[in-house]
């Protein structure tokens, strides 16, 4: 399968987990990586800055109407839902919370599933709620591939556990092996 995007959802404990995964991604990553992480903040967000520090790929916050590119990691801004439009560009909205969250992993996964279909590789990491589970169902329904973090290796197990319970997860891996699996699936090793 030729994947066109990697989509990662996480919540509590997510920053550490993302840093561990991104350490293994050097320049020349052939497709964009899009991250939806819950952030409990009211002002400016520093998630992209923090991740940029520990990653060779360029990390930036999504801007609406732009189309994601290879060699880049995009983060969803705090307090906005991130959607993939039918032309592949990002859009943002401040619709009510979904699964008690904004950004909601479900919203991004569902719209991305519809746009990318089989070409989507979705990953659910550590987190303290079950946002992302409906998203995982959608990814599977449109033929995409889902990886969940092995809950025992998650700082908070609820999110990957809940995703796994949907029966729509293709692979379950400990945190340290997730980067390798992603690289394998996108034919980088």
């Amino acid at each position: 399968m030729d994947y066109q995007a990697v989509l990662i959802g996480c919540s509590a404990g997510g920053v550490n987990a993302l840093q561990i995964i991104f350490q293994s991604f050097l320049e020349d990553f052939p497709i964009p990586i899009i991250v939806v992480s819950h952030q409990n903040i009211h002002g400016k967000s520093f998630l992209a800055d923090v991740l940029n520090y520990s990653s060779t790929l360029d990390v930036c916050e999504c801007e609406e109407k732009t189309v994601p590119m290879a060699n880049h990691i995009y983060t969803a801004p705090a307090n906005y839902h991130l959607l993939i439009e039918n032309n592949g560009s990002f859009s943002l909205n401040i619709d009510p919370k979904v699964s008690f969250c904004r950004p909601s992993i479900d919203v991004t996964f569902e719209t991305a599933a519809e746009y990318y279909g089989q070409a989507l590789l979705a990953v659910i990491l550590t987190g303290a709620n079950s946002d992302g589970s409906n998203g995982v169902r959608a990814v599977k329904a449109f033929g995409g591939t889902v990886i969940a973090q092995e809950p025992l290796t998650a700082e908070v197990a609820t999110m990957p556990e809940s995703a796994i319970q949907t029966g729509c997860v293709d692979y379950i891996y400990p945190l340290n092996d997730i980067a390798g699996k992603i690289l394998e699936l996108i034919n980088k090793v």
Binding site: L83, E85, N86, S91, D95, T111, E114, Y115
Partner: peptide, 9 residues
């Protein structure tokens, strides 16, 4: 209007 957003509504 942005279609993906509009469709959800």
């Amino acid at each position: 209007y942005n279609f993906a957003s509009f469709k959800r509504r």
